[in-house]
């Protein structure tokens, strides 16, 4: 129990990721874990989102501006790619890497900034 509790306290919390408005396909890398959900609050509602994992591509349900990756059982280090098609033609390429529970991202806010960071 104490081991699990210590793991829990080191779970990566919510964080914010900035992408450039001028980059047609900005790349984001996140950690996912078995039994963990990683949610993305995007700057706009995507028109479509799909997840490529274990060689299979599947649509990801969209809840307003939010999409979620619910990781399946996979080896640590396995990679998946979530692609969110944004209005305006921008494609968010979100690389998801299987990791330990305590290294997984829980909630990520994606914001757009220009190249000067404003």
């Amino acid at each position: 129990m104490s081991l699990l509790l210590s793991l829990l306290l080191t779970v990566q919390p919510q964080r914010t990721v900035s992408v450039s408005a001028k980059d047609p396909a900005p790349h984001i890398s996140v950690g996912i874990a078995e039994n963990a959900v990683t949610s993305f609050l995007l700057y706009a509602e995507p028109t479509k989102a799909e997840l490529l994992l274990d060689g299979r591509k599947e649509d990801v349900p969209i809840h307003k501006n939010t999409v979620h990756i619910v990781a399946k059982k996979a080896k640590i280090g396995a990679k998946g790619v979530l692609t969110a098609f944004m209005p305006g033609g921008q494609k968010l390429v979100i690389e998801a890497i299987m990791t330990k529970f305590d290294l997984a991202d829980g909630y990520i806010t994606v914001v757009v900034v220009d190249e000067r960071g404003g």
Partner: peptide, 17 residues
């Protein structure tokens, strides 16, 4: 025993992890 997480959105726009 297991560990997991949930994201709970509130009507105010805040999401509690």
């Amino acid at each position: 025993s297991f560990a997991t997480n949930c994201n709970v959105p509130l009507s105010t726009g805040l999401t509690v992890t």
